[in-house]
Design a protein around this nucleic acid. Structure first.
Length: 204
DNA sequence: TTTTTATCGTCGTTACATCA
DNA sequence: GTGATGTAACGACGATAAAA
């Protein structure tokens, strides 16, 4: 029974060495997805003499030291380092590749957590501002009620003087338009408890 | 000038070692 | 024994420079 991997490997070989036959076997595929060649399973130590070896602490330490100096590895330095460590230059190159990948991942993680912190604090500030807007709307509502009360009182006492009459229609939109605060954020941006009472705001 | 070849880098993945 | 994690190693692929 052949595994999918074995089949894929054979198809790759077939396509490479006998493309015509491969085309007949796999006809009219609009988009032939080139299968990634699978790595052969590494045989056990006993059969090949190979064993994936973990680098010693000294080796890693020297490699780290070199990586700290320079993340890229030119071939001269690679060969020198390899002979110092008693490793194959290819191993040194691979170590640097993996180390660069780890370093990049670390950088991405740090960048992500910084962005997340910024995002969270921005969210907090947004909530604070929304609360402030609600508070200001309440103040505005109270001010309007006060204005109405005073206007009614004025209407009752001096009905003859046109200049003294106060028409609420003059305050029509945008001011009393459902107390919409759009565009007014900076106009009424006062500190907490600095309320503007009565007609004082009219003098501003 | 264009094509081929070699080399090196990144990316994604695999396989193995180690540990809880 | 097993799943999670770390890492050495690999293959695919792209960029680039030098040679043909």
């Amino acid at each position: 029974m052949k595994t999918q991997t074995q089949v894929d490997d054979q198809l790759v070989l077939l396509s490479q060495y006998y493309p015509a036959i491969y085309d007949q076997l796999i006809p009219e595929q609009v988009e032939v997805v080139k299968p990634r060649r699978r790595r052969r399973k590494i045989k056990s130590e006993s059969s090949t003499g190979f064993k994936k070896r973990k680098l010693s602490d000294e080796q890693v330490s020297l490699l780290e030291q070199n990586f700290g100096d320079e993340h890229k590895l030119e071939s001269e330095r690679k060969d020198k380092l390899a002979s110092e460590l008693g490793l194959d230059p290819r191993q040194v190159a691979v170590w640097f590749q993996n180390r660069r990948a780890r370093w990049k991942n670390k950088q991405l993680e740090q960048e992500y957590s910084k962005l997340k912190t910024d995002h969270d604090s921005t969210l907090l500030e947004k909530c604070r501002l929304e609360t402030e807007v609600l508070k200001l709307k309440e103040q505005l509502s109270e001010a309007e009620k006060e204005i109405n009360r005073l206007a009614e009182r004025l209407d009752g006492t001096s009905s003859t003087s046109p200049s003294s009459s106060f028409s609420m229609e003059a305050m029509e939109p945008p001011f009393f338009d459902g107390f919409g605060m759009e565009g007014l954020e900076n106009v009424f941006c006062v500190q907490d408890n600095n309320y503007i009472h009565g007609f004082d705001w009219l003098n501003i």
